[in-house]
């Protein structure tokens, strides 16, 4: 087989624009879903059942159905209620809904992994809750939250390809168009694989940096 990457000479602006859209989705979704997840985690960690049970139901639904279905709901069902979204906005809304609950569960699990003895010490010393979270619980929970958080984020980078099915011209959709137009599938696919690789490598670099940051006070 003879590889000829010259197709990229004319098609690269179109494909890179697709990569930019994919990246835009990832960044906006992470920026929206991370703080939302912190709030949702409060609900999932609540002792008040009037808050806990509805949150658990929402989490079960959003994490239980395929993200593709969530995108379809955002794009095809929501407009029935009079809110019309562009494909890009619908994709961002759908991914945000899904990712918020995924990350919220990670946060809850991270805090649950903190030794119960820490809570006893906090109570015995009479530390106020906010300070206890900031100084004691969060620093201990983060090392077990960050790695899966990054891992889910890399998953989402790949997951953005789903947005193509509601009409967002992201990287994979554009690659598909270019393949049809040029009949050069290998060259195009290898190229976009490299683009995904670069984004994922960036995220993994972030993860390594984050883990180094908490290394000094190695966990017991």
């Amino acid at each position: 087989m003879h590889l000829n990457f010259s197709v990229w000479l004319t098609r690269w602006p179109y494909l890179l624009q697709g990569a930019a859209i994919s990246l835009e989705i990832v960044v906006i979704v992470l920026l929206l879903s991370t703080p939302l997840a912190m709030i949702a985690a409060l609900g999932l960690g609540a002792t008040n059942r009037a808050i806990l049970y509805p949150m658990m139901a929402i989490s079960w639904i959003l994490r239980g159905i395929p993200p593709l279905v969530i995108l379809f709901v955002a794009y095809f069902v929501v407009p029935q209620f009079g809110i019309s979204l562009t494909p890009l906005v619908a994709a961002i809304a759908g991914f945000t809904a899904y990712n918020t609950l995924v990350v919220a569960e990670l946060i809850v699990a991270g805090f649950r992994s903190v030794d119960p003895g820490q809570h006893a010490a906090i109570a015995a010393l009479g530390l106020p809750p906010f300070r206890a979270y900031r100084r004691v619980l969060l620093p201990q929970a983060l090392p077990s939250i960050i790695p899966p958080y990054i891992s889910y984020s890399t998953d989402m980078v790949k997951g953005t390809a789903l947005a193509g099915s509601i009409g967002v011209l992201e990287l994979v959709t554009r690659a598909n168009q270019v393949i049809l137009a040029t009949n050069r599938p290998f060259e195009i696919l290898l190229g976009i694989a490299a683009l995904y690789g670069i984004v994922d490598a960036g995220l993994m670099g972030l993860q390594a940096a984050a883990e180094r940051l908490w290394a000094p006070h190695a966990r017991r």
Binding site: D115, G117, A121, V136, Q140, R219, R220
Partner: peptide
């Protein structure tokens, strides 16, 4: 406490 429960961080 028996297990100290110091804040490891």
């Amino acid at each position: 406490f028996q297990h100290f429960n110091l804040f490891p961080n």
